[in-house]
Amino acid sequence: MVRPPVDLSVNVGGLALRYPTLMGSGCYGTGAEFAPFADLSRIGAIVLKSATLAPRLGNAMPRLVHTPAGLLNAIGLQNPGIDWLVEHEIAALGGMPCPIVGSAAGFSVDEYAQVCGRLDASPEISAIELNISCPNVASEGETFACDANLTASVVRAARAATRKPLIVKLSPNVTDIAAIAREAERAGADALAVVNTVRGMAIDVERWEPRLGNVAGGLSGPAIRPIAVLAVYEVARAVRIPIVGQGGIANASDALEFILAGASAVGIGTANFLDPRVPERIAVELAEYLASRNLRAISEIVGRANAGFATPEQREGDAG
C-alpha cells in the first residue's frame, strides 16, 4: 500500500511554512550566506539577524567560545541599522525559496515599534520576530523579556506597528517564563519563540580573565536543550498561541521533544555551525517518524507529551 505523503507544513501564528524549521536569528545571516551549503527550498523560514534603529558595531572580540556541549556567544547585535538593512539587504531577498522573518531589537519601546514598522513595510518580510531577550547588550537588551510589564508594553507597541505575524522571543533567564508568556500573548503576540540563549561565561585560566570580550555571553547548543524543552512545556500550558521551540536542536529526535512538549515548529541555530544540512535532514527524518507511525501530519503530535496542553489546533485534532 502506498502511504499518502506526510504533511510537515505548519502555521505559526499566521506564518505558513512548508517545513516546521526556522533558521535561528543571528545564526544564518540573510540566508544567502548558506545558499551554497543548504537547500533553502527545504527549510521552513529564515529569521534574519536582529536589527536596531541605528547601526551598531557590536561587542569587542572575542565574541565566541566553543564549550563542551555548545557555544557561548556575545556578538552584541552588530548590524547596519534597520534603514540600511531594508534598502540593501532585505530588498535583495525577493527570490528566496522560503519565507523571510525579520527580527527587531531595540533599547526602548519606541525603538522596537519603529523597527517593526520598517519591517512591516517591506514586502519581502513575511513575519516579525521581536527579540526582547538578547543577553549580550550592555544595558536593557534583555530587561524587556525579564519583566512581565515591560514585555507587555513592548509587545503592545510592536503589535500596533505591524499586522504581520508577530513572534515574541522569550528569555530562559527568568524565574517564571509562563508568566512572561501570558503577558506577551495578552499584549497581542501571534506566536512565541522559546527560548533565546542561556547566560553564561568562560574564564581563561592561563590569563586569569574572561574569555569573551563582553565577559558574559549566551549559551546555545545541546547543553541548553533540557532547559529549553522544559520552558516550552511550561509555556505551552500557559498560552494558546503557537510556539517555536528552540535550544540545542541538532536532529529529528531533538526536534520531536520540543514538538511533543507543545511547539508547533522548531528553531535551528547552532546546529547549522556543525552542518548546514541539519535542517533538511531533520525534515526528512520527521517525515519518516510520522510515516512509521501512520501519522499524516506533524501538527497531529504537537503537545502530545504535555497533558496540560491545549491550543485551538490541538483541541480540533482531538475532536477529529
Binding site: 565574541r63 556578538i75 547552532t270
Partner: peptide, 16 residues
C-alpha cells in the same frame, strides 16, 4: 586566525 562559529559569514562572531 580566529575562532569561527559558522565560517561562512552568517554569525558575525569573528570580526576585525
Amino acid at each position: 586566525e580566529e575562532t569561527f562559529a559558522c565560517g561562512v559569514g552568517g554569525c558575525w562572531g569573528c570580526v576585525v
